[in-house]
Design a protein around this nucleic acid. Sequence first.
DNA 1: TTGTAAGCGTTATCAA
DNA 2: TTGATAACGCTTACAA
Lengths: 355, 355
Amino acid sequence: MFAKIHSPSTSAKRATIADVAREAGVSKATVSRFLNHRDKLLTKEIATRVDVAIAALAYSPSPMAQALKRGRSRLIGLVVADVTNPFSVAVLRGAEKACQEAGYLLMLFNLGNDSRRESEAIKTLTAYQVEGFILNTLGRDAGAAADAARHGKPVVLVDRRHQDMLADFVSLDNAGAVRLGAQHLVESGYRELLFVSEPVKDVSSREERKAAFRGFISESATGISSLRGSTFESTAEDAEAALDNALRSLRQRAGEQRPPGVLSSNAVVTLRVVAAMARLGWRLGTDIGLVGFDDTEWSPYVGPGLSTIAQPTNELGRIAAGCLIERLKGLELPPRQILLSGRLMPRGSSVSTPT
Amino acid sequence: MFAKIHSPSTSAKRATIADVAREAGVSKATVSRFLNHRDKLLTKEIATRVDVAIAALAYSPSPMAQALKRGRSRLIGLVVADVTNPFSVAVLRGAEKACQEAGYLLMLFNLGNDSRRESEAIKTLTAYQVEGFILNTLGRDAGAAADAARHGKPVVLVDRRHQDMLADFVSLDNAGAVRLGAQHLVESGYRELLFVSEPVKDVSSREERKAAFRGFISESATGISSLRGSTFESTAEDAEAALDNALRSLRQRAGEQRPPGVLSSNAVVTLRVVAAMARLGWRLGTDIGLVGFDDTEWSPYVGPGLSTIAQPTNELGRIAAGCLIERLKGLELPPRQILLSGRLMPRGSSVSTPT
DNA sequence: TTGTAAGCGTTATCAA
DNA sequence: TTGATAACGCTTACAA
């Protein structure tokens, strides 16, 4: 016969509260009290008897049964648009840490960039009695998040706002970060600026960044007459030609004297721009300037080093989880918006050029 | 007063099976039967009545209650050493997909590289009645995984073996992949080879790769007399000097004629080597050759493009989940080892040099 | 074919 | 201070 990997025969069933009660010679209620109120209400003698019984049987209560009875599961649902996105992973890490410290467990649901699955995610997680949600999703399906709220579960939004959603919101200060990057390009001598992002659609963070870029240009153009800016929305990798053309005409507009500067709205787009540079044979920092959102461990080593705007990703996750846990503890406040500042990491891709 | 974000008053409690039964004018058992055996056992008329009641109340069964009753939770525990590791994320993605298709939900537990928390992870997940485990961890804590098996839960190991662990094992064919990379370096003209890995400790994949490298050298040295190989274990970034020295003496050994070649054992190490190159002022592909494990989206853009050995990461995750689900369905086989081949992605960092 | 009732492992309400 | 007992939402014998 085959060697069994796991023999159900061996599978010593987990000890239950009844087992402990029997072992200690007390009632289930007593054991439960010991568990929940420690020994506040118990005789020292009984308490220790229960204690040793628990140790002897290696008993630990079933969260399932507790959830069923209490209606609370110590579970928090985290829905991310795409686990592949380093930003999401960083948030996940931060959130996870905070949850663990507060005795919650994260249940992850990954949309795999399919925003239609958002309501499925919420539904599934609600079924598992999660006590609240951290959402890093498009929120296109307006009903989804609203559903969660309707079930009386608090929600925290990360990075992307949802329409009409009364919920805490934790995010990078996009406007400030864009100014940081654009200002840096200007100070480095670039005058013809291009903002490249993924299709804006209804993603709030993309909208905000684009709008901030336009705002920056129109504000600054009064002081620096030569300053000009435009925007480009880059689709998936298969539309390389469009990006190449946009960059070519950008460089033409910039003229011979000065190279143009690009501000890219996230790491994915940055990589697309870098790829375009390679195709066009342009040198970063010399033929064109580049500053990109999201600092990664590889940023220093691409070309002459990529200048980036670093997001406090772990913090974002930690704070998001923190907000949620506060609500779970009963805090009642109007929805908060918590915006964290980005940090400029200047590197070779935006070296200053002579005027 | 503050605007409440979620008003417990509004929180329309989820409908229960009892609600549905009342609405349809039948017993709970009938509803349960409808749910589990569809209408096999029910009158058409009753079936439709139940059906509309379910729809009307937007009822869906509570997995918690089901788990409690059945002892099965439709949950699979995934423990990863470090979510920050792109490899782990890819596995996560693959596994998640397979699980979802089979109607399971993944519960993620991230060790944050703290291997001492492994037994905590297993314990927590067991408490939540997960039906099986996918483990991508060190397995140092021999008891941890064994615990899982003792509870009668099937286990699948990904990338890293555990000692004495009777479990399915899914991994890259490390030996083959090392040969692929080393052979490529040799064919590109490099003769003085260095294998750089993280501290081997007891991580099986690291051991296997290192051993395979040594094996390759001793096998090939008979045919190519000038071929020589050595190994170096790189610790965290703070020990840069040691790596720099190792590389310097490597280049010295290689002599003026030919540059030396480096095979790095994962993406983190590759980045360390690239950083060292930058510090030393060496050009990749010219002053030194480099092939690294793990192909990433940024590999093509670092230096002249990094040559890599791509792992079929999504596949690994998918297969791992598949194995587990087969076991859950009752398959009994001796432990399997499933090894997938790596693929060489040659790029500029290992351009062939004239003899 | 349908209903009744017991029980999964907890906690909470009552008495004692 | 402790112990029965009911209930949480579901499944499953067993009866009808």
